[in-house]
Design a protein around this nucleic acid. Structure first.
Lengths: 197, 197
DNA sequence: GCGTCGATGTATCGAGCCGATACATCCCGA
DNA sequence: TCGGGATGTATCGGCTCGATACATCGACGC
């Protein structure tokens, strides 16, 4: 149990290491640059995670090229193993309801390029329904509350609802784009001028 | 140490109990209605917190009116003690940098009505500078990254930056309103037509 | 040469918090 | 009368965080 939520860090590390081998310090910088807007990555969780991944054989230490040893400060560079790549694929494609959560969604989204359209749609829609549930539950709870709320609380509610609603709208656009892209892919009527990527 | 961040729950409970005595189950519902847009409150933290507050003498069990005992399901209603009210005031007025954090800010804001204008401004401005730091750090980290980012990552960045920028703008409005209100309070030139609250 | 300051780098600890879960009671409708 | 859903209290395992310790490197002034 408890295996669903907490594994996000693992996914984030595996995904980052997929591009290029990294050591802890720089890995943290990468993660904070990539996802710092949504959450902060700390050593207190990063290093234990690296150790665990190493023990599982999903990552491995990379010895530096012998010629470059001379001046280097001692650092431990990790790279993804073949098992690690498999695991990354599994984590990405088997993304369950845990992936719609606040802390997880951003990480999954950041590695969408490694996934299939079907998986992307599932995550996007799951995230959306999660947010809509939240919206509903807060709204009905608020409606039931007869007590008068002070202006600060009201403003907080207003702002919170607006933020979540905006997020839902963003998801709607992404879902629409995703659908358009995949239907076009099915029936590629050489419309050309598209696919500038 | 560790006394700054984690105490938010304590503040949330104390603040909720200030209005009216409550038992655990309903307390949780209140908190989720009030702040569910920003975070979720779970029993796993709520009950230990209640026990801790009880041990500190900040809350006390309230015995039901003897006439009402008959049909009631067993429940433990907590009320704020005098010490609890003091503590609540302290937590609110002595709000340090921990209060600008994501998880804490909403809770503090929800109880702004119990604070002085000076404290409110301090928290609002602190929160703003925290977000601006984050903006800076992510932006410079991104600028340094020479690698080409895929379109999903770019979209995530764009969305994240926009959200935080919007939050900063919201804070700016609140700060301006707060300043206007307090300067008007200092020099109350019977402009009237204001203070419709 | 020498001190020192900030960035780089690895690592751990205490403590808070969460999701899941177990139990038990009450109420209502089929 | 039987079951399901809301009400209610409580705990456990495990994840995560901020703070911190410790060490080295490069660059700067002097």
């Amino acid at each position: 149990m408890a295996s669903g939520q907490g594994r996000v860090l693992e996914l984030a590390v595996l995904g980052s290491l997929h591009e290029t081998p990294l050591h802890g310090y720089e890995l943290r910088k990468r993660l904070n640059a990539l996802l710092g807007m949504f959450r902060a990555f700390s050593y207190g969780s990063l290093y234990p995670c690296l150790r665990s991944l190493l023990a599982q054989g999903l990552i491995a230490e990379e010895q530096p090229a012998p010629s470059a040893i001379v001046g280097g400060r001692s650092k431990i560079v990790y790279k993804l193993t073949a098992e690690g790549k498999e695991r990354l694929q599994d984590l990405l494609t088997q993304a369950g309801p845990a992936a719609w959560e606040d802390e997880s969604f951003g990480v999954h989204f950041a590695f969408f390029r490694h996934t299939e359209a079907e998986v992307r749609l599932r995550i996007l829609e799951g995230r959306r329904s999660r947010l809509e549930e939240r919206l509903d539950s807060v709204r009905t709870a608020l409606a039931r509350t007869r007590e008068r709320l002070d202006s600060y609380t009201l403003e907080l509610q207003r702002h919170g609802l607006e933020s979540v609603e905006r997020e839902v709208r963003w998801l709607n656009e992404l879902i629409a784009t995703e659908r358009r892209a995949s239907s076009q892919e099915e029936r590629p009527e050489r419309d050309t001028t598209s696919t500038d990527e």
